[in-house]
Amino acid sequence: MIPSQRYFGTAALAAAAVTLCAQCDPVRGDAIDALGGEAPGVRRGPLHRPGQPCLLCHDGDFRDPEGFSVAGTVFLTPEDRTAVNGATVHLTDATGSSFDATTNAAGNFYILPSQWTPHYPMTASVTPPAGAPIPMQTLIHTEGSCAGCHFDPAGTNSPGHLCIELADGGTPP
């Protein structure tokens, strides 16, 4: 097989997989469409799509993109979306097993299933680069994307994007 043929074969397979996937869950397909395209100048990778529900796409179906068990983004304040680089996200699951992940320059962190997969319910806390841990006071029962609940605007069904500081220097509720 000449390389271009192989490429064509792979592309066709990938196209088929995408179609299949979109067909089996139209709700998920719509939710992904609603997120829009990549931000200009940001490559698909560890720094992309901060604040979005990563596992919507990184669900491990067809291994492309690769699946995550837990992922999210830490921002500074409720008012804006300044990324926090170097925060520690501490997660503990129902069996007492825990895992620490560190946020990158986009505020993103992600955990591969091979690194750690929680048994729900899971608890979370975030420790800023300097400062004391800020606990989330309630439980996570099924959702591996922090942004599955932490989205804007804050309202009856969301505490708003995940952040670690209030304008007055206090910590969020």
């Binding site: 309630t138 996570i140 309202g155 009856t156 969301s158 505490p159 708003g160």
Partner: peptide, 30 residues
């Protein structure tokens, strides 16, 4: 919680501080 019965889409729909709030001006924990 918001990832379970704290949603209007479940038959057992639950409102409360840990999840979905009833009043438009309330939000989780407040």
């Amino acid at each position: 919680t918001l990832d379970c019965h704290g949603t209007a889409f479940r038959n057992l729909r639950l409102y409360g501080s840990s999840g979905l709030r009833l009043s438009e001006s309330d939000r989780p924990f407040v």
